[in-house]
Design a protein around this nucleic acid. Structure first.
Lengths: 151, 151
DNA sequence: GCTAATTGTGGGTTTTTGTGGGTTATATGA
DNA sequence: TCATATAACCCACAAAAACCCACAATTAGC
């Protein structure tokens, strides 16, 4: 299970070093093979260990092709998915089109999110974070399942 | 069950020594393995023994991914959760991003809160305490479940 | 009130992790 | 077929965190 936040730098060659904690999980689950794609909703990227990704792709492919939203989801999500492999130092290259989608420059933020890791530009993440924290209404309009959560 | 308040100092390396009482509880529940994350509502951190945290994470991950508030909760809560382990002296390192979130400097306050321990900057806690005490109206506008509590 | 044990604190050392850059291979297009 | 650009591979150094040990302070027991 991925969790936690890490600040990392993308180097001049567009390589991203995965922090040691995430690397262990990726190596364990898939010998360093991963899939990176875009988040269709937010301007960030999502990284999955290969096996988990294949399950997700299978589910999405089964959606009815004639439904425009399903088609859209397939184009965005599957269409942008690239296979990557970690090098000897635990780094991989982020494909340039994905870099552009998420406005990635030097400073990035990695967010562990259970089965996937999200990649944000530092700048975008900071503003996202600020608005999430300011918007205190959010907590009152939570889905029912959550109202009863205590933690 | 954690309870009680403790003042502690974070050392120059960002390490925090858990008071003996809490340490016993953590060691018993999880051999010193713990998870620290932010409180999405207040500017403080929350520490859980690993097993309890995993239950909570599982619940939160099951929330619908397309609901924006659920997503927000996942990013804040799971996104900031880091695994830590107590060293031989019962200390652990607070990840720098979390330190920043809760404005932690040297003097901290630990607050036992049942299944979790809250970590506050001493300064923030003092002002929080003052405002909680001043705002005595609060007690009259409690949710129904509480109106009937006797203690 | 003294001693002993436990707890809290500081800092040095070693190992791991992160970062940069050089070199070789591979692909692309002229 | 060759030239150029890009990506994979490899090595070396810098930084940080984990580990370990030793001492100070506090508490408890006698």
């Amino acid at each position: 299970m991925f969790r936690g936040i890490h600040s990392v730098n993308m180097d001049a060659k567009g390589r991203l070093a995965i922090p040691a904690k995430f690397r262990e999980l990726l190596n364990g689950a898939s010998e360093g093979q991963l899939v990176i794609t875009i988040d269709p909703v937010a301007r960030c990227l999502a990284v999955y260990p290969l096996p988990q990704w294949e399950e997700i792709q299978a589910k999405i492919e089964k959606l009815p092709s004639l439904n425009p939203n399903a088609k859209r989801m397939q184009r965005l999500f599957i269409g942008h998915a690239s296979d990557c492999e970690l090098d000897a130092n635990g780094r991989f290259l982020i494909p340039p089109p994905l870099r552009a989608y998420a406005s990635l420059e030097k400073k990035l933020v990695l967010l562990g999110q259970g089965q996937k890791v999200e990649i944000w530009s530092d700048e975008l993440w900071q503003s996202q974070l600020t608005s999430m924290l300011e918007d205190s209404d959010g907590m009152e309009s939570l889905p029912e399942e959550m109202q009863s959560l205590s933690f």
